[in-house]
Amino acid sequence: MYALSLMFVVLAIVLALLSLASLHRQRPHGEDDSWRDRLPLLFRLVRPVVGLFAHHVAERMNPGYRDLLTERLQRGGVGYVMRPEEFVVTRRMGLVTGVILCLMLMPLAGEAASGWRLALIAAALLFIPLGLLYPDLWLRDAIKRRQALIQKQFPFLLDLIVLTMQAGLSFAAALGHAVERLPAGPVREEMRRVLRETRTGVTRREALGRLARRTGVSAVRNVVGAINHAEETGGELAGILLSQARQLRRERFLRAEKLANQAPMKLLLPLIGLLFPVTFLIIVFPLFIKARDSGTLAFFF
């Protein structure tokens, strides 16, 4: 029986290697990857396998779904790290990895004691949805972190633009000077992209509109709308940007105040579930020992 199982495992490995070799021959060679940013360590490890399946997935992807994934990758700051089809392949590889880990833990669950068997089976089955959902969870967290940095750094950009415009520069020249003096971060990356697009012939209105769609931050959309409105009506742009910067800081202060007010409610559940039981045990256990030694418990039992 063991020899038969071993034979099936070897046959499965051979078939998998033959399939990978066939996919490698069909993969288009000579692709230029100079456009990519530095890849994360985990993606660098799995990228050779991802590349074998990516072009097959790309041929079958729905255009609307591709655009949706592209937008999410750009919002997470990884639009120049991986393509949408590579993200889909990574998600499927996570599912396969979860299934493999589940199958590896199942024999251990069968040999475990009856008290641990159900827990090990539940842990093994948990690897399957975790492997499938991990890429999406990682991307969602990347989007939230990046949007938080944009909301934090964007008022500083507006202040720099206002200062340079008050010194006599136009909005386009002030934007270039401000971007060069920004600290490294998502705002600097996005504004440099806006400058590149305007230099290649894209109108400033369209470049700013793309910026608002890429970031998905309401503060950026409001500023872009205010700039477009000022250009249409001939309003004073420096004053509008200064008021927008003050408004963004006020909104950030209100968000921080709201989170501070929510903190006690969020701490209530860990306090009730963890701290109170421990405190109760520390107080009651010595009393229980004394009552047992003195024979007081015999009166109740």
Score class of each variant (00 low, 15 high):
M165E: 03
Q151N: 13
L101E: 06
R92Q: 09
L95D: 05
G110F: 11
A113K: 14
G115E: 14
P107D: 08
I128S: 05
Y134N: 02
L120N: 11
W116F: 08
Q153A: 11
F87C: 10
A122I: 03
V89Q: 03
L120I: 12
F127R: 04
A148W: 07
R92G: 09
Q153R: 10
L118E: 13
L169D: 06
L125V: 07
G94K: 07
R91T: 11
M104K: 07
P129C: 04
F154T: 03
S170I: 10
A112P: 14
F156E: 08
A142H: 08
A173K: 09
W138D: 10
Q151Y: 02
Y134W: 15
L163N: 14
A112N: 12
A174H: 01
I100P: 07
G110A: 14
F127A: 14
R92E: 03
L132C: 04
T97A: 14
T97K: 05
L103G: 03
V88K: 08
L120R: 13
M104D: 04
F156M: 11
D159Y: 01
F171Y: 10
A167L: 05
V96R: 04
W138Q: 12
K144L: 08
L126S: 08
L105Y: 11
L169I: 06
M165Q: 04
L137D: 03
L137V: 08
F154H: 09
F154E: 02
M104Y: 11
P155W: 00
A119R: 14
L157Q: 00
P129T: 05
Q153P: 01
